[in-house]
Amino acid sequence: MYQAKVYITLKDSILDPQGTAVKGALESLKYQNIPELRIGKYIQLQIDETDLSRAESQLKEMCEKILSNPIIENYRYDLSEG
């Protein structure tokens, strides 16, 4: 069994209105030292697989096919046995 943690973030070139709004809220709470804040998605999943490379290629495929939209998002992941 493999445990995967997938982090999906908007590409740097894409404006993040949600992140900008939250950054504004922090500023209104007097946190003035936040030059950048961006919001992404975190997905945790298990892959019932015995081979690491098969688990990894499946994870990549899932990220590109549905979990992220490569036009606007990047993804990265942590994959470990457990």
Partner: peptide, 10 residues
């Protein structure tokens, strides 16, 4: 082609 983002003012 392309994608949809959240509305500018959320």
């Amino acid at each position: 082609p392309g994608a949809m983002l959240q509305n500018k003012h959320v």
